[in-house]
Computed example of a mutant assay.
Amino acid sequence: MKLRKASALAASVLALTLTATACGSSDDDNGGSGSGNGGGGSDTITIGIKFDQPGLGLKTPDGSFAGFDVDVATYIAGELGYAPEDIVWEETPSPERENLLKRGDVDFIVATYSITDTRKESVDFAGPYFVAHQDLLIRADEEITSESDINDLTLCSVTGSTSAQNVKDDFAPDARLHPFNTYSECLTGLENGTIDALTTDDTILAGYAAQEQNVGKFKLAGLNLSEEHYGVGLQKGSDLRDDINAAIQKMIDEGEWSAAVEKNLGPAGYEAEAAPEITETN
């Protein structure tokens, strides 16, 4: 079922009513804040994505947005009744995802957002819509052949990510971990030699390795260190989950999901798993 936006006539009546009864509003009219509930009949919908993840969520030099997460979010928005030009994209760094949802700054988030029990205590999820695996990005002339090697490395990941937590809790508790706000900062450290490896999901790493300026510099280590189920993040108690799940399933059934994977991740040589079964239903 699509969300229905107010008709032009209804909007005109509402505008006249507000003009007659009030001089202004206490809300910030910046066009970039969501309601946490699908826009609440608004003419726009605000969606959180990453701005610096090639192949997934990237703000391009001309100000447009590209990537698999962008395509998934755009498809979902269309099923909710919003055209691409109705979407307000909100940059969503990993440490801020829960805060953005709790404050209602975004209507939902599609930003390599792994579903975990800890996160589900404060936010809801729809999906999952993708399965990735944690790996390492290393310099092209180096090798890491086993998990035991990781404890001797200086690693970088992003604050608030499951990848950073996995390093501490599971496979490399003795590694020197440097958390940053963005993966781009980690990549700079890897290039200048202050970092031995960038660790996060293989989808993200493949996108960076495939960038024109990085070809031949970096490679994936090829270690499947975890399984990450990407979900659509929602404010706790949001009534959008069923509609978003239906949109994801339709995207899969119609072949649009596979086409988006191939378009965005295929050039990096990434071989994705089949679309996952939707599990976040209550």
Rank of each mutant, 00 (worst) to 15 (best):
L100E: 07
Q211G: 01
L155C: 10
D243N: 15
G81L: 06
H133C: 05
L14A: 15
S148D: 15
E147P: 09
A172R: 02
N245T: 07
R241I: 02
Q213C: 07
S33C: 10
I45H: 02
V13Q: 13
A272L: 06
L177N: 04
S122L: 03
T281K: 14
M251S: 08
P54N: 10
L198V: 15
D141E: 09
G269T: 06
V106T: 03
T19M: 12
D124Q: 05
H229L: 11
D253T: 14
E271W: 01
T112N: 15
E280A: 11
C186Q: 03
L177H: 04
P61L: 09
I87E: 01
G231A: 08
Y75H: 15
G24F: 09
Q211R: 14
A275R: 04
E262D: 11
M251T: 02
L153Q: 01
A164F: 10
I47Q: 01
A73L: 06
A164W: 06
E254K: 12
E280V: 02
G31N: 07
G255I: 05
D169N: 09
P61Y: 06
L205W: 02
A66M: 13
S184L: 05
K263S: 07
G189D: 01
A66I: 11
F65L: 13
Q235G: 09
K250Y: 07
E79Y: 05
R241N: 05
L16T: 15
I204P: 00
F171C: 04
D135F: 12
R241Q: 12
S157G: 14
T188S: 03
S25K: 14
T92G: 09
P95S: 09
D86P: 01
A126M: 13
A175E: 06
Q53W: 11
